[in-house]
Design a binder for these strands. Structure first.
Lengths: 154, 154
DNA sequence: GTGAATCCTATGGGTTAAGTAGGGAATAGT
DNA sequence: ACTATTCCCTACTTAACCCATAGGATTCAC
């Protein structure tokens, strides 16, 4: 699982947007988002375009323009952000996990790939931008973090 | 999460190897593994070299040579296979999840990345080659698969 | 109309993924 | 000793992708 710079930037931009909207309803220019999280502005623009096409943000053109969350931060799931900028959560050689097929000793492998995807969904489709902003993650996610070596390398 | 062809091939080769060893102790040539799972032979050779360096298989050179599992299939975890051929399970812009650092609204983001990694570990570091071969996955993995839409796209 | 901002298309450089090619080194069977 | 088999190693290729950047066209508040 390589979380791309694109996805990382997208989440950070949305967090910054969510934070700004708590005190100010005006749209936030890409330039400001880029500054606050130290992101390359032109690249960020392309990412915001993806997020707009996916319906996660809305944009306002012209002077005093910028970006807004398309809905409350609590209703924007990280899974949606991943899919918007990087496509499906899990793929195996370009196939969706449930589309893979094998013969012989590898017969049951699709089950494993589907389980991998399901475990990603359990995190990404149940954590919202609001959750991350406030640091209050769902209980079952906190339970994952409680594993003794969750913060250690392997 | 893109599961690479390399990783896919590695797991399939190990499954085939485990299967063969249930009835025959002789080492299995790369050519045979390639045939049985329809993998490009030369590419597979490179992958088997990774697995050998990681201590997952042993090799025997010369006529009547081939590959063997370095230990019982029940003691080879998928996580080890992933790491052997593709490096760390999760990375963010080239960093390990626990090494990421952010300011401002993204403060709590490392927690999320660590949770993502933890959830992958819960599957990959608890399922062995033997489990996949027999189709008998651990209970908590089967529970993931029981989610109503585990097999559906999103 | 002017300046601020998004939107669109094109482009580039570097890295990686996936696979190929060719031959050297070891070994079992004869 | 010879031969066929098989692993081992280095180098190469080809295409795709990732991470941007450039330059302008369009929209809009004032």
């Amino acid at each position: 699982m390589d979380i791309s710079a694109k996805t990382d930037y997208a989440v950070r931009a949305l967090l910054t947007l969510a934070d700004a909207q708590r005190t100010d309803a005006r749209p936030v220019p890409a330039e400001v988002l880029a500054e606050q999280q130290d992101l390359p502005r032109k690249f960020l623009e392309a990412i915001l375009a993806d997020l707009r096409r996916a319906g996660l943000v809305t944009s306002v053109r012209g002077a005093a323009g910028g970006y807004r969350l398309a809905r409350p931060a609590g209703q924007i799931l990280l899974g949606a952000v991943f899919r918007a900028v990087d496509g499906p959560l899990a793929e195996v050689r370009g196939l969706r996990p449930h589309e893979t097929a094998y013969t012989g000793a590898a017969q049951h492998l699709p089950t494993v790939w589907v389980a991998v995807r399901a475990s990603l969904r359990r995190v990404l489709d149940e954590v919202s931008v609001e959750d991350v902003l406030s640091g209050k993650l769902p209980a079952h996610v906190r339970r994952l973090l409680a594993a003794e070596d969750a913060w250690a390398s392997r």
